[in-house]
């Protein structure tokens, strides 16, 4: 390869804001500008339109709607209480053709208590090691933290990978942490 792969950079976009509440405009404008975009009044030529509140949003292929009602036709829908980080990420994602929704507890539905195969359960030490991986610690760092040998750390990590069915530390964290929180319950 002649050149290193380009780092993914956030695009600089033209964003139009329509709101039913004039006092919200400066807040939303601030979020858009902080995210490094320009604000345009020309809805037709905007890359992304933010439609705030109960405003009838324009016919545009990339609309981020802020409000609770999900009509399932709007490209992206966030709650009005969405954080600046969520709004910024939704603008980027919507501009490249993705549809964004908030992952809500309600989508999870009313379900059964988890029953996990015993051979796939993590040991308390493996859970600790997984937490250390999430902190980005090296094997040496983990060994120091728990006062065990690096050899033992490797042994725990291999076992973690096998139980979680993953091949890297990053995958272990991505798959393992949600799995753990799903299995936790209060009684």
């Amino acid at each position: 390869m002649s050149s290193a792969p380009a780092m993914a950079t956030w695009a600089h976009l033209r964003v139009a804001i329509v709101s039913s509440d004039p006092s919200r405009l400066p807040v939303l404008a601030g979020i858009v500008l902080d995210a490094g975009h320009d604000i345009t009044k020309d809805v037709d030529n905007a890359d992304v339109v933010i439609a705030d509140g109960s405003v009838r949003h324009p016919d545009h292929p990339a609309v981020v709607k802020l409000g609770e009602v999900d009509d399932r036709e709007t490209t992206s829908v966030l709650p009005q209480s969405a954080t600046p980080a969520q709004i910024g990420a939704a603008i980027q994602a919507t501009a490249v053709g993705l549809s964004v929704r908030v992952r809500s507890a309600k989508i999870e539905g009313f379900g059964a208590a988890p029953e996990v195969k015993a051979e796939l359960l993590l040991t308390p030490r493996e859970i600790e090691v997984l937490g250390a991986l999430a902190e980005g610690l090296s094997n040496k760092g983990i060994a120091r933290k728990f006062d065990i040998s690096e050899h033992t750390v490797k042994f725990h990590i291999e076992s973690l990978f096998r139980k979680l069915g993953v091949r890297s530390r990053a995958q272990a964290v991505i798959r393992g942490l949600p799995l753990l929180s799903q299995m936790r319950f209060e009684i």
């Binding site: 996990v116 015993a118 359960l121 993590l122 040991t123 308390p124 030490r125 319950f185 209060e186």
Partner: peptide, 13 residues
């Protein structure tokens, strides 16, 4: 009935 505890299934060492 209530125990006031959060539990996580684990493999016994």
């Amino acid at each position: 009935g209530w125990l006031g505890i959060a539990l996580q299934p684990v493999a016994i060492p």
